[in-house]
Amino acid sequence: MKRIIFYFWLFASTTFLFLGANSAKAHQESFKAMGVVQPRNELPAPNFTLQNSNGNSVSLSDFKGKAVLLNFWATWCVPCKKELPSMQKLYEALKLDGVEVIAISIDRDKQKRIHQYINDYKLTFPVLLDPSQKVRKDYFILGLPTSYLIGADGKLKGFISGEREWDSTASKKLFSTLVQ
């Protein structure tokens, strides 16, 4: 009996290790495919409170428990504009699975144009305004677009510099590993 239990335990742990390794590998691959830089130490994402385009205050802490794509953009940034529709598609596809998209505009005084973008691209995810550049500086943004991946635990999981196709299969795979 002991021998049977031993073999069962050995089989179960090997299977678990194999599946775990596969999952980690898939996780790594999806990060690599999207060009995500992973942190050496997972630090909490700096919290912030900003106004959205309707003038309501929104904090990052409001989204605790969800995987967040935090994107920094500006109306004068052409690559930023290109990726906005794909962010909307990603949001529509995965919001019920616990994925949130937050876009922070660093425009200094372009509320009207930001509103126009929200309407033109039919953006339903929160678009926040950072005219004083404070949050931009807290996140060390030196180029646009720049995005961070934040886990459900509120910790930074990835850094992405430049435009991406957020509605691609690789991206959806990435977020599905992030919400697990």
């Binding site: 942190p39 630090l43 060390f140 850094f159």
Partner: peptide
């Protein structure tokens, strides 16, 4: 190559 991820945030 894109921008480097910030060390200050654990990267």
């Amino acid at each position: 190559k894109g921008f480097s991820a910030p060390k200050q945030l654990g990267f």
